[in-house]
């Protein structure tokens, strides 16, 4: 099976990897780099649990081949988390108890982070639309939406 040498920056660290042609970015992150914060919920681009930032844009990492990420900058939930503390967005999720099982949370945080980067003061509808691709079965979404609002009010992600 053909493999390819790629260079990809993940959470600010440059990684040199040999990846098979068919390997997805999701599998590369989880299985080659052990960055398991990014979750595999469907491998079909439907649930959003695997959302990561690729050159600043949120993507379903199960729908991107690792070879396509050659030269790209990737940020995962691990990259959102400052050392020894949480980001304001993460703190807002804690404040609102916007987490239950936590499986969708990493993908939700990435989508919300990307929203706040491009629109620092989103209204409720903008938040709902930004999160429409991130399925959550536990929370009913309302607290997630409030947490994003709180983070925006406090100055961003």
């Amino acid at each position: 099976m053909a493999t390819h040498s790629i260079t990809v920056t993940v959470n600010g660290v440059r990684e040199y990897l040999n990846v098979p042609s068919h390997m997805t970015l999701l599998r590369m992150l989880r299985e080659e780099l052990a960055l398991t914060g990014t979750k595999n919920g469907c491998e079909a681009g439907e649930c959003g649990a695997c959302t990561v930032l690729m050159n600043g844009e949120p993507v379903n990492s199960c729908m991107v081949l690792a070879v396509e990420a050659d030269g790209a900058e990737i940020v995962t939930v691990e990259g959102l988390t400052p050392e020894d503390r949480l980001s304001p967005l993460q703190e807002a999720f804690v404040e609102h108890n916007a987490v239950q099982c936590g499986f969708c949370t990493p993908g939700v945080l990435i989508s919300a982070h990307a929203l706040l980067e491009r629109n620092p003061r989103p209204d409720e509808q903008a938040i709902k639309e930004a999160l429409v691709g991130n399925l959550c079965r536990c929370t009913g979404y309302l607290r997630i939406i409030k947490a994003v609002q709180t983070a925006a009010e406090k100055g961003g992600a």
């Binding site: 939930v77 691990e78 988390t81 999720f93 804690v94 987490v99 936590g102 499986f103």
Partner: peptide
């Protein structure tokens, strides 16, 4: 469990 869950370090 909430801090590890928002940090992405909670293990499944």
């Amino acid at each position: 469990d909430i801090r590890e869950k928002v940090a992405g370090t909670a293990v499944f």
